[in-house]
Computed example of a mutant assay.
Amino acid sequence: MQTVISSDVAHMLMSVRNGKTAPPAHVPDSQIPLSIEDAYTIQDEVARHLGPIAGWKVGSETPASEPFCAPIHTSTIFTDGTTVPAELCRHLGVEAEIAYRFAHDLPPRTREWTRDEVLDAIGTIHPAIEILDTRFAQPGSQHKLLHTADQQSHGALIVGPGVADWRRFTPVQEPVVLTINNRIVAEHTGGNSAGDPLRLLVWLANHASRRKIGIAAGDIVTTGSTTGTIFVEHDADITACFPAIGSVRAHLA
């Protein structure tokens, strides 16, 4: 029964993405995934239609709670200074994040990846901007497992230049400045509810392994908002600066 529900939700999400169905304002209780595993099953069904996976988003509500994640596809990853096409996202929820690019594969395997193995596979650290969007009528309007199923509300990821000496940074102690249309809207130190993002990367490596996807060399993993989510209108200029790591800029058409 749950497989049928998962397929129905996946079909609905793809229908919205393809412009065949209006984003729903309400989803019946009978269509809500029964577990986080069911939500990931829906992610996998949707992902088969979205092209190559080139990264992940991972986060956690607290430093001790179970993380959650979603794959990110080539079609929604952009480089510093890009203009994100207006048609890509209906809603524009801006977040400043710290991301890591892997230099070595962490493929699926039967035994767990260790923390040392995962950290040794990291190549660079990056400033990033994630744009949150939704295939529902409004962000945050549905049961959280439906938003997890909807690729964790991912819209786009803009990745800044990388720094190879990533181990010298302590992400929870890094200052961040988020600017929207030349106005500072967030400026503080730390701010990620997940705490240490390296814990998230170790969890993700094993989660992706169990899902038979793994992490590939070149994949980018963004580790959650350091600023909260700030929704903006289209035609906005965004800059996220982590002074010691670097800056990333984007224009949201």
Rank of each mutant, 00 (worst) to 15 (best):
I213H: 10
R135S: 03
L106H: 02
Q142Y: 07
G195W: 09
R183W: 04
C241F: 07
Q152V: 06
V163K: 10
I213Y: 12
H188Q: 15
N192K: 05
D165V: 01
T239H: 06
I220G: 00
A128R: 03
V172N: 05
E174C: 11
D133T: 01
L204G: 04
P127H: 04
Q138P: 00
Q138D: 15
G155Q: 08
H154E: 12
L146A: 06
W113M: 02
N181C: 08
L132V: 15
F242S: 00
T124R: 03
L201D: 01
T114K: 14
W113G: 09
D237C: 05
G155V: 07
N182F: 02
Q142C: 02
S153R: 08
I213D: 07
I215F: 08
T223F: 05
I122Y: 06
L201G: 07
H147N: 14
D116H: 07
L200H: 08
G160H: 06
I98T: 00
G123N: 04
L106M: 13
A208S: 14
T148Y: 15
S225R: 01
I220V: 15
E174N: 06
N182L: 06
I184E: 15
A217N: 12
T227S: 11
A164H: 13
L204E: 04
Q138K: 14
T222G: 04
V172K: 09
G218K: 09
V232P: 08
F231H: 15
V172P: 07
G155N: 04
I158Q: 06
V172M: 10
I125M: 07
A137N: 10
T223W: 01
H147C: 03
A137F: 09
I131P: 02
D120I: 01
K212T: 12
R183H: 15
V118A: 11
A240K: 04
F242E: 00
H104F: 12
D105Y: 05
A121C: 12
D235P: 01
I129M: 09
I122G: 09
A216W: 08
Q138M: 13
P161R: 12
E187S: 14
R109F: 03
T179G: 01
V159G: 03
I98F: 11
N181G: 02
V118M: 03
H154M: 14
A216V: 14
D196V: 11
R101K: 14
T222A: 08
R109G: 10
E174Y: 08
T239L: 13
F102Q: 07
P139H: 12
F231I: 08
D196H: 02
E187D: 15
E233W: 00
T227D: 02
L178M: 15
Q138S: 11
L106C: 09
T114M: 01
T148V: 12
P197N: 06
P139E: 13
T222S: 15
T179E: 05
G162M: 05
L119A: 09
A128H: 08
D196R: 00
W113I: 01
E117R: 02
G162P: 09
T114Q: 10
P175R: 11
D165I: 00
R167N: 13
R115Y: 10
L198P: 10
F169P: 01
P175M: 14
G162A: 09
R210E: 13
Q151E: 07
Q138V: 05
L157Q: 11
I213A: 13
H234F: 00
A137L: 14
F231T: 14
R111I: 14
R199S: 13
T124N: 07
R168L: 04
G155L: 03
G160L: 01
G224S: 12
D165R: 11
H104R: 15
H188A: 12
